[in-house]
Design a protein around this nucleic acid. Structure first.
Lengths: 272, 272
DNA sequence: CGTTTGCTTGACAGCATTCAACGTTGGTGG
DNA sequence: CCACCAACGTTGAATGCTGTCAAGCAAACG
């Protein structure tokens, strides 16, 4: 029910798994400055994320067409925005490396984190609705995205029904994910929310070849709290409680799950 | 921010407005039994909802093609389901008359209302993700929907880019709406939630030619509470409070907004 | 007309928030 | 290299909003 953006299937990338303590993003010394458009392109057909990203299910010949569509990569530095609310919508983006959050703001300044995106997940679908982006997308670490011009994606979708269908599935999956978050926000208590959040994160990391039991949080307690509809103090307290109960080992942003079954039981428990 | 499924533009249907006290659904004495497929088809090109529904922005020739796609109407009796979680996904549905809720359920029996749908709005988009419906759609009054076979919609979308784009916009709009609900559930207090809910409902009803200040709720306090992440008692108390403060006149499900500005101020107020 | 379902209201309890203080970490500049 | 600062995280105590439980009332339905 709370399965989020990650594909449901247990896909594992062919690339050797990096230990979870390592960054999800590349940490090259020569990282280009924020928002710079890298001159080189990366072919979807040879991308190790192709089983997690837009190309899922496409045949080799179709992939070649997709290669022509996907523009250059773009690098975004930690803390910078890939796009802001109100920006003209031109492209959707596939996270290649790194980690993002999306958030919306109400007029009175409250804001709400609406999602966290990792490698292979798409950003910017909200912009189709009004031709302007409806949220901010902020990099939580130095990241790279593939730029997918939306007009060209529509054009190619009309030629290849497999691509069309895959794109529709991705949008539909986002809707289903959002409904799961509504269930979480509407009916779960703090412990259940945090447990569901951690299980979702590890599941998605596991699908990308990382450990299912250890992770490094890329976001602050406040960002977790915003996503889960809790205050940062409540998030912190709940982490401590989980640690006291032997479910987790928490050392700042390093989390090790020591009792996954216990966490899972929390999520499924009836409100007592 | 909380604008929901309704189109942003202030569209008014050409049909004369029915008083809000009248049912949103037809109450024909000879209403066919639940789920019966009516034999006659209704052309989108002559439907008075065409400015609120899938056909938005399509030219007359394109509309004729859409007519060939949209199957017969289907009637659903109050309390019956248009589809259930797990049902094979074959079609999306456009509400022609009546009123629906969608809900998801967690394993432990808690459920969450994820939306209310009225005339012109689409149902079933969640099913594209896994080829099975991911929620239940329940009619809150006797209703009729237009059946839109999804495979044919994809086919036609590849022929007509306007239709393709409109369909994408509708999916994107649902994503944006869901994010607005997350903001509501994650950061608003009971009064703010109910005020936002009422304003959203009246806005959508107004776009359909109904009064912006009077409405008849089609759902119970419990369903409102589920959607807003509140218990039914809290919903009831908040209605009473609004009445005491002169914002509303509440008589069971008949609501009259007597101070819209006051309601609006509530939504935009900072948590004090 | 009786039964069921939905709505309202009161009293009380509990969970999350608020406010506050303190500890930790990482980056910057002297 | 170290000190300092800012951002982040932890924890305690008290408040309050919403949930829970219960009773009574109103409306809808057969």
């Amino acid at each position: 029910m709370l399965n989020q953006s990650a594909p449901m299937s247990e896909v594992t990338v062919t690339e050797p798994a990096t230990p979870p303590s390592a960054s999800l993003g590349e940490r090259r010394a020569s990282m280009p400055s924020a928002m710079k458009l890298d001159s080189f392109k990366v072919a979807c057909s040879s991308c190790n994320l192709r089983e997690l990203c837009l190309p899922v299910g496409l045949s080799q010949p179709q992939l070649v067409h997709l290669d022509s569509l996907v523009g250059a990569r773009k690098s975004i530095k930690r803390g910078d925005a890939l796009f802001h609310t109100g920006d003209p919508f031109k492209s959707v983006y596939a996270v290649r490396t790194g980690f993002f959050k999306t958030r919306i703001s109400s007029e009175d300044g409250r804001d709400q984190v609406t999602g966290f995106q990792m490698a292979g997940e798409l950003l910017g679908l909200d912009g189709i609705s009004t031709d302007r982006h409806a949220c901010d997308a902020i990099a939580l670490e130095d990241s790279q995205v593939c730029v997918i011009p939306y007009g060209q994606l529509e054009d190619l979708s009309r030629e290849f029904s497999d691509l069309q269908h895959q794109f529709h599935k991705i949008m539909s999956r986002e809707i289903v994910r959002d409904h799961g978050v509504m269930l979480l926000l509407g009916s779960m208590r703090a412990e259940e929310r945090l447990a569901a959040f951690l299980l979702n994160l590890t599941q998605r990391l596991h699908a990308r070849g990382f450990s299912a039991s250890a992770l490094v949080l890329r976001m602050t307690r406040e960002e977790i709290g915003s996503y889960l509809g809790l205050k940062l103090e409540t998030v912190s307290r709940t982490f401590s409680k989980f640690q006291d109960e032997g479910l987790l080992e928490v050392k700042q942003r390093d989390i090790r799950i020591t009792d996954e079954a216990g966490l899972r039981a929390l999520v499924n428990s009836v409100r007592c």
